[in-house]
Write a protein that binds this DNA or RNA. Structure first.
Lengths: 218, 218
DNA sequence: TAGATTGTTAATCGATTAACAATC
DNA sequence: TAGATTGTTAATCGATTAACAATC
C-alpha cells in the first residue's frame, strides 16, 4: 500500500461505527469516564476482540491496563464519522416521509442543516416546515449551487428516484440519502446510502415466519 | 442436522431476499417471463454464482438450459418472505414519523394492515390517520389482544423505546419494527428489525468524507 | 511492582466466487 | 441433438475470534 493511499475500511466496520458512537454517547450521559473493550463488549453484544480490531483500524485509542477514555473515544469516532463539520441538506419529495424527516430535530443537532424542501405538487409549494420552505423542483439546481448543498435526500416515489438522483448529481451534490424503494445508480465519487423501509419490513416478516416454524418444530 | 430442524439461513442471504423480490416485481411489470442468473446478476450487481447459491438455500427454482421463470420465482420468494398471509400492525408513537408510516400505502398493499396508532399525547388521541384512530397508550394491551395484533412499530423517543418493547412483548406481539435510535432487547422468540435512521445518515457522512479524502490523494 | 488490558498476529470460521458435471 | 444454464462441490477470500507479547 502506497504512503498516501487511504487504508480501505470494510463496510462491516463502517456500519458498526454509528453504533459505537451511540453507546459512547450513552456512557458520556451516564458520566462514565473509562471503559474496557470487555465491558463495552458486554453492553453491545460484540466480542472484545472485535471491538479492539474495529477501533485499531483508525488508530490506537486505548491504553494498556486502563482501557479507553470514553470522552476521547467518543470525539475520535465523532471525527471519523465526519461529524466535526456541518452539512447543507435538501429533501426532494415533500410528502409524508419527506415532511417527517424535515421535522426531525436529531439531524440538525448533529450538523445536518436542512436548507430546503422540493416538490412538484403546487399544493405543497410555498408551505413551510419548521421555517424551511417547500419550493418548486424547477429551481432545485439553482438552489443547490447558491446554497452550497452537500446532501440530497430522495423522498420521491420509485419512478422518479433515478431521475432525481441524476439531477442532484449533475448539480454537484456529494451525498445522497435515498428513501425511495429503488436502487439508484450514482457515479463513483458520490456517496449513496439507501434506506429501503419496505425491505426492512419484509425482513421482519421473514424472521417472524422463521421463528414461527422454529416454535412448531421444537 | 435432524430431519425436522429448519436449515439455518444466514442473515446475509435473508437481507438480500427483499431485493430479489423487488427486482423480480420490476421484471414482472415489464412482462419478462424468464431470466437467467447471469442476466439477473447484471441487473442487480451480484455474481450469478451468488444468486444461484442464494436461491438454492430454499429449493431448486430454476431449470437447466432455461433459467428461472420470473413469475414462479417471484411468488416463491413472496411466500418465503411470508407475504402470502396478512399481518395486523399497530404503531406506537404518533409523531411525525409514526404518522408518515401510517400514511404509507405500500405496506397495506403487501398485507401489513394498520389497525391502530397509540400515543400518550392527549392532543393527538382521537385523531384519525386514513381512518385509523390514534388511541391512548393505556388501552394498547387490550387492543393487541382483541384485535390480534402481530406487529408493533415503535416510533417513540429513545427513552421509552425499551419500555414500549417490553409492553408489546408482554401483550404477545410476535414482531417489532423499531425506529427509535436505541437497541432494544426482546426475547428470543420475538422477531426484531431495527431501522436506525441516524445511523444510516452517519454512515453516509463517513462515506462522503472517505470519498473526499480519496479525491484529495489521487 | 503486579495486574489489567491493549494492540496485533495467527487461527478459525463463514460467505463469496469459481468450476463443472448434470440435465433441460 | 447441441447449447445453455442450473445445482452443487471445491477453492478462495474476507471477517471474526483467539491468543499473547507489549506496556501502562
Amino acid at each position: 500500500m502506497g504512503d498516501n493511499e487511504v487504508k480501505k475500511i470494510s463496510m462491516a466496520v463502517i456500519k458498526r461505527l454509528p453504533r459505537y458512537h451511540r453507546y459512547l454517547a450513552e456512557l458520556l450521559r451516564r458520566d462514565i469516564t473509562r471503559i474496557s473493550s470487555a465491558e463495552l463488549s458486554r453492553l453491545m453484544g460484540l466480542t472484545a476482540s472485535q471491538i479492539r480490531q474495529d477501533l485499531n483500524n483508525f488508530g490506537g485509542f486505548g491504553q494498556q491496563g486502563y482501557g479507553y477514555n470514553v470522552s476521547d473515544l467518543y470525539y475520535a469516532i465523532n471525527r471519523i464519522l465526519g461529524l466535526n463539520t456541518s452539512y447543507n441538506m435538501i429533501i426532494v419529495g415533500a410528502g409524508n416521509l419527506g415532511q417527517a424527516l424535515a421535522n426531525n430535530t436529531d439531524f440538525s443537532k448533529r450538523g445536518f442543516i436542512l436548507k430546503g424542501l422540493f416538490d412538484i405538487n403546487p399544493k405543497l409549494i410555498g408551505l413551510k416546515i419548521r421555517d424551511v420552505e417547500i419550493m418548486d423542483i424547477d429551481v432545485m439546481e439553482e438552489f443547490i449551487y447558491t446554497e452550497e448543498i452537500d446532501i440530497g435526500v430522495i423522498c420521491t416515489g420509485r419512478e422518479s428516484a433515478q431521475e432525481t438522483a441524476d439531477r442532484l448529481v449533475k448539480a454537484g451534490i456529494k451525498g445522497i440519502w435515498n428513501f425511495a424503494p429503488e436502487d439508484i445508480k450514482v457515479p463513483e465519487d458520490v456517496a449513496l446510502e439507501n434506506v429501503h423501509l419496505s425491505d426492512s419490513l419484509l425482513t421482519l416478516s421473514y424472521i417472524m415466519n422463521e421463528k414461527k416454524l422454529a416454535r412448531k418444530f421444537s
